[in-house]
Design a binder for these strands. Sequence first.
DNA 1: AACCGTTATACTTAATTAAGTATAACGAAA
DNA 2: TTTCGTTATACTTAATTAAGTATAACGGTT
Lengths: 111, 111
Amino acid sequence: MKLCYKIWLDNNGKAFGEGPYDLLKRVDRLGSLSKAAREINMSYNQAWKLINMLEKRLGFKLLQREVGGSQGGGSFLTEEARELMDKYGKFSRESEEALNKLYQKYFLNDI
Amino acid sequence: MKLCYKIWLDNNGKAFGEGPYDLLKRVDRLGSLSKAAREINMSYNQAWKLINMLEKRLGFKLLQREVGGSQGGGSFLTEEARELMDKYGKFSRESEEALNKLYQKYFLNDI
DNA sequence: AACCGTTATACTTAATTAAGTATAACGAAA
DNA sequence: TTTCGTTATACTTAATTAAGTATAACGGTT
């Protein structure tokens, strides 16, 4: 038996969560949404749709896009994306700690 | 923007969570799975499949069933179901508190 | 001008999950 | 023995979600 959970921010649908957080981390490192998607075996199409949906729900841009050029272009985090990720990262980490602590408290002896 | 989350126990698939907890609470009050299901606009079929799945994954019975008789029969919580629900209820309540506190800490000023 | 790896977007298909339908056994009570 | 409201279970259908396919614009570099 194990504990499972999903936590997300919602605004007329999922607006941010662990998946997007991870994806954007990779975009930041790689400078490209398509590279980031590829790294986790997600199609670019899927990643693009995800980011677009989130931006609509959040009401601000997560990525600054550049199209064309010798490297084809790229995507980079906006300042607002960084702020959100910073908050969400801390929130997520502390949430995990809290839930695991409670799980141990109540389900220590296997059920 | 609001916080959303789902928390569940897993053992080769979802083995217990908020939905089953609520359903079993009603079974306890009504003495019938079909009545409990009806109360939350869930088909009996659906409720039955749910409970059966949970029992398989948990490895013990949640309901003691009685078939036939003037009232048709009924379902009643097993002792193990009561113990699990007691633990889960407290765990769930404290988890909610903890998560809401963390959400306020990080996302107080609307994003 | 041709190439290349991006972003952008519509459209289709598959997979998974949820919901519904249909039957039947049970057993006390009338 | 008929009725009634349960539990039990297989089978089908619908709905939702996820995944895939196809096409095009962009703009440095060669």
